[in-house]
């Protein structure tokens, strides 16, 4: 569990200081996936750095599982916006092994951790032998994630985990995230995204930032049905919610449709109410 209490932070530059976050309070629950959304420059990455204990707040507190975030060490895993910035070893294998090795893990246990993390992220044996710079952007993202997972953190922070990934890579990353919070162990996952579709489909809770302030915190169905909130924060709607609005404008009311599977259910029900029925299979 992550607790943010009245957190504020400003960047100090030659020209003065710029407020990045102002008075943020929220509790991000364990065994849930929280998405942080907001416009470019709204403070999302800064918030992640504070939760990760990389930066300390100017005022307020950030606690992770009851401890000050700055004192949590390797129990917090952080996958940065640009994965290539955190790959440095000679081979992908060595890179994944680097984190657990720094924790003093050696021998069979180290190998088991690397193998497990590589399997989880679909990094095959051929890729493990390559140098990290030989990987494509998406493969680097997965290698960086594998390196963090090999350290077995209890909090996983991901800054734009799906940016630059193809659809199958994106599905893989989010299925890994889901499996982590569904496991028996205590796990908190927070990810930053610009994709409203990803936030709607893969998050349990959503924190909306606007100009460094908390604009809202709630479930996807609460956030994405509040168009005034989203447009006030300069954010768009997921494509299926746009479809819901377009249908409404045409006099049809399909009900909630946050993602494609829920849109399918809602549209089928609505079509049924309108007397449109599917034809028996084989006539399609």
């Amino acid at each position: 569990m992550i607790e943010l209490r009245n957190v504020s932070y400003s960047y100090r530059t030659i020209s003065g200081s710029t407020a990045a976050l102002e008075n943020i309070s929220a509790v991000l629950p364990s065994n849930k996936v929280t998405a942080v959304i907001g416009r470019t420059g709204s403070g999302k990455s800064t918030l992640m750095e504070l939760i990760g204990g990389i930066t300390a707040p100017d005022s307020g507190t950030v606690t992770v599982n009851g401890l000050d975030a700055g004192k949590c060490g390797s129990s917090i895993g952080f996958v940065f916006q640009y994965p290539e910035h955190q790959l440095f070893a000679e081979t992908v294998y060595d890179d994944i092994a680097c984190g657990p090795s720094n924790l003093g893990i050696r021998g069979d246990e180290l190998e088991a951790r690397v193998t497990e993390a590589a399997e989880l992220t679909h990094i095959g044996k051929r890729l493990l032998r390559l140098a990290p710079f030989e990987l494509s952007g998406g493969q680097k993202r997965l290698a960086a994630l594998a390196g963090i997972l090999a350290m077995k953190p209890s909090v996983l922070l991901l800054d734009e985990p799906a940016a630059g990934l193809d659809p199958s890579g994106r599905r893989l990353v989010f299925s890994i995230i889901r499996s982590l919070v569904s496991g028996a162990e205590d796990m908190t996952v927070v990810f930053v995204t610009h994709s409203m579709e990803d936030a709607a489909e893969h998050a349990d809770e959503i924190l909306v930032l606007n100009g460094g302030r908390k604009a809202a915190f709630g479930t996807p169905s609460r956030i994405f049905t509040d168009e005034k909130l989203l447009s006030g924060c300069g954010l768009g709607l997921p494509e299926t919610v746009k479809l819901q609005k377009e249908l409404y404008a045409l006099g049809l009311d399909p009900g909630e449709m946050l993602d494609v599977p829920s849109a399918f259910g809602s549209v089928c029900e609505m079509l049924g109410r309108c007397g449109v029925s599917p034809k028996p299979k084989g006539n399609v």
Partner: peptide, 25 residues
């Protein structure tokens, strides 16, 4: 379409998809 509905074409955006569904009703 896979569920058996008579979907006349593929809509690529929300506006077109709404027109298509409205056309089905």
């Amino acid at each position: 379409k896979n569920a058996g509905y008579d979907v006349p074409r593929l809509a690529l955006n929300a506006h077109d998809c709404a027109l298509l569904i409205s056309g089905m009703t």
